[in-house]
């Protein structure tokens, strides 16, 4: 048990943009309750430099937080996307949706593709399970 665990992890502002993924789609067709669906839907993809700045490596977990929810996600690094500092990508699903604000200003259209959050490194927490989201 080290001194570091008592320090608060710094929070960084990000915008999450959601997108589709064929492999998550397949796992969704098979079962919403399967491990593969959960594993693919709970990943947040970050820019390499942002990961470096936050002291993160692939497979680490981060806490994504805003006024709507607090969700623990697994980090992956971008592969072929151009640099995207401050922007994170997630496959759309219940983990990303938990962070989408309910307020639409009366339009009835939530901001599914521009989710403002803060991200901080998580030391010990595991990815939020599906049942805790709803």
């Amino acid at each position: 048990m080290g001194f570091g665990q008592f320090l608060t992890e710094p929070e960084f502002k990000f915008i999450i943009v959601t997108h589709r993924d064929i492999f998550q789609n397949i796992s969704q067709e098979i079962s919403r309750f399967g491990n593969e669906y959960a594993e693919r839907s709970s990943v947040i993809t970050l820019d390499k430099d942002d990961m470096k700045k936050m002291g993160l490596k692939a497979g680490d977990t981060v806490v994504a937080k805003n006024t709507s929810a607090r969700v623990v996600l697994k980090v992956e690094s971008s592969v072929y996307e151009k640099p995207h500092p401050g922007i994170a990508f997630m496959i759309n699903g219940p983990w990303a949706n938990a962070l989408v604000p309910a307020d639409t200003g009366g339009t009835g259209v939530p901001r599914f593709k521009k989710i403002e959050v803060t991200l901080s490194r998580s030391k010990t927490e595991k990815v939020t399970p599906l049942n805790d989201l709803i």
Partner: peptide, 28 residues
């Protein structure tokens, strides 16, 4: 499967309403 596709806060509210689901598969 609106509980999977709606914003979390709205999904939670919808889950508290008496729901009837017609579907071939189990979902949220």
């Amino acid at each position: 499967d609106p509980l999977a596709s709606l914003p979390g806060e709205i999904a939670k509210k919808l889950a508290n309403v008496p729901l009837i689901t017609i579907d071939p598969c189990n979902n949220l």
